[in-house]
Design a protein around this nucleic acid. Structure first.
Lengths: 233, 233
DNA sequence: AAACAACCGTACGGTACGGTCATTTTTCTT
DNA sequence: AAGAAAAATGACCGTACCGTACGGTTGTTT
């Protein structure tokens, strides 16, 4: 009992190495079929994403997506109702991934404030200046005027979530006597600004090389220093 | 001796109120004709810009541009060789405008450092968070991957120019004993970051309302305060 | 008056698009 | 093995685009 030949062939054409095992009973088989349909859908999304990044949503065509996938255009419509449906799926997926990444950045419950800021700031700056995030950012904002809710969603999934998490952390730090803020939210955005603005902008507009780990470290080290000079007790 | 009727009619359709005066001699007439051709070209660019903002470069069509202009598609090709030529003209124009704006921000030669930073920071933040700049920003970055040089050009015209100007100012201020920097360039980018990052990002992704004058003032006032806390002597 | 320039509205060639569907191929069930 | 169901294909459709061409109109210049 194996994966359908057509499905296997389809996924291999798309560059997927699926070492799917045989399944013994019916419950697992049902589960299996479900996974395969999702896998096919994800495969299409992966390839579509790449073409969207390169050409933008409008100039990307269903034909070129199918071609790169190594399948037939008609098959795409088994998985997505329309090109617009594909674009929406792209947006949803990348908002979810971005949110998950930002929420996954850990901040200590208490103590080690300086180290926590350094660590968080570095990770945050790395995520936001990384090529993949930049590409998503460019795509999402390119439709900001046509689909304003989409861009807003992306902001809420990433930047807003990150800021909220930092606000909570800084409130606790202030209560513990580490800082003194007039406006903790403003201070939060200032810290984030110090960590990301320079490289974020430059990357966004293709200026210079991507920042090295050392460059990000230096940027965030100085950000923490400035932050303590301004708000440290 | 008046403007050609066809030109007048064309410009009126495009919403231009051109109260062009009669011209008495030939030199002025030659000058006049030159201006009119430019005016026509600018009129097309204005309308094309608006459609580019709304729909993006790819989805904007020459037909819709001509329609909104109230002219004929064929006439567009008297002024621009192709759609791509029109896009390039858009990019050049807005890089030039942006650069001109940034370079027009005055910084005192000496003295009044705090006031100068406040004044410059407010104006800079207003420019970069203003809807018009945001729209340009979105369009330029939407083609960053396809036309990497274009996005770089825009960065060099705006953000880089702004930072260079500020670096010069801060060097003088340091020499005058106002600040002490380990890295004047880093400090420059930190100041700019503190002034713009929060509202720039939010505007870019349609989150919340455009910042009021009061909000920008508050943001920049705090930025200067933080900056002095970190680097002031 | 004739020639020229600017512009319009219409039409066209060539290409490409998103989406559809009849047919073929593959898998599953009996 | 036969037949049904599912998956995939490739041809096709109607529409739209870019860029060009053309006949006609209007205004300007010679």
């Amino acid at each position: 009992m194996t994966v359908p030949y057509g499905t296997m062939k389809f996924l291999q054409r798309a560059g997927f190495d699926l070492s799917l095992q045989n399944v013994e009973n019916r419950t697992m088989l049902d589960q299996k079929v479900k996974l395969d349909k999702d896998a096919r859908r994800e495969a299409i999304l992966d390839v579509a994403s790449e073409i969207f990044y390169e050409e933008g949503f409008d100039a990307a065509s269903m034909s070129s997506i199918a071609q790169r996938l190594g399948g037939s255009k008609g098959t795409l419509y088994n998985y997505f109702k329309s090109k617009e449906d594909l674009v929406e799926a792209f947006v949803q997926r990348h908002c979810a991934v971005h949110q998950s990444e930002i929420e996954g950045l850990l901040l200590a419950d208490k103590g080690h404030y300086r180290d926590s800021l350094l660590s968080w700031g570095r990770k945050y700056a790395r995520i936001t200046t990384r090529e993949k995030t930049q590409r998503n950012f460019r795509l999402i904002t390119s439709i900001a005027e046509r689909w304003p809710d989409v861009a807003r969603l992306f902001y809420q999934a990433g930047p807003l979530k990150g800021a909220e998490r930092m606000v909570e952390f800084l409130k606790k730090a202030e209560a513990a006597g580490e800082f003194k803020f007039d406006d903790v939210e403003l201070a939060t955005h200032q810290f984030i600004a110090l960590c990301q603005n320079r490289h974020l902008k430059a990357r966004f507009m293709n200026y210079g090389e991507p920042p090295s780990e050392a460059q990000i470290d230096a940027e965030v080290t100085s950000a923490v220093k400035v932050f303590y000079a301004a708000y440290g007790v």
